[in-house]
């Protein structure tokens, strides 16, 4: 019964319009044309997204289509004011890179990029953020959310059961084995 739910019936319950909307987003690969983000903006976001969630034995942010999702949010979700503010803040991240690293983010060597990201990441829990820090904080939220709600991560990494079939209040967590 459980496999029927997970494998078939649950999918059948997705309304057509909703499924269509997902296909439109999911069909956007990392390097696909974007509707709002310019190519430099998309490259900047991709660089930061994969710095936050890089490829390891699990996919990176761009591997699972986070850029397409952020472009969809920027295009169809944000109001014009929110969109303009978001893009301005993304631009400010590059200006921040110039001021502390001596060049636009994508032109910098990996070690310097890491320094820029570290400076933004350590600042973003303060109040009174600069535009670059605000842009990074929102981008990090979008990257984390977009990554962990993506189909590949939900299904293959987190292995979230759509229909658990039971509630167990106390499951032991295995102690990690040191590699």
């Amino acid at each position: 019964m459980q496999s029927l739910w997970q494998g078939g019936l649950a999918t059948l319950l997705v309304p057509g319009a909703v499924a269509g909307a997902w296909r439109a987003v999911a069909a956007t690969p990392a390097d696909a044309p974007t509707r709002t983000l310019t190519s430099p903006q998309a490259r900047l976001i991709a660089l930061l997204a994969d710095a936050i969630l890089p490829r390891s034995d699990t996919p990176s942010a761009t591997d699972v289509g986070v850029i397409g999702w952020i472009d969809a949010v920027a295009t169809d979700y944000f109001s014009s004011v929110q969109r303009s503010d978001f893009l301005d803040c993304i631009g400010a991240i590059d200006e921040h890179a110039v001021s502390i690293g001596g060049g636009r983010l994508e032109s910098l060597p990996a070690g310097v990029v890491a320094g820029v990201v570290t400076s933004l990441d350590s600042a973003c829990r303060r109040k009174n953020l600069s535009p670059a820090e605000r842009g990074y904080a929102l981008l990090k939220e979008l990257v984390v959310f977009g990554y962990f709600t993506s189909e590949p991560v939900q299904k293959n990494v987190l292995q979230v059961p759509i229909v658990p079939g039971r509630f167990d209040p106390s499951v032991p967590i295995p102690t990690p084995v040191a590699k």
Partner: peptide, 16 residues
């Protein structure tokens, strides 16, 4: 009914 719709099945994933 949409209780089994997953976040990746809607455009904004119920974010925001």
């Amino acid at each position: 009914y949409v209780e089994h719709v997953q976040p990746y099945q809607v455009p904004f994933r119920a974010w925001g």
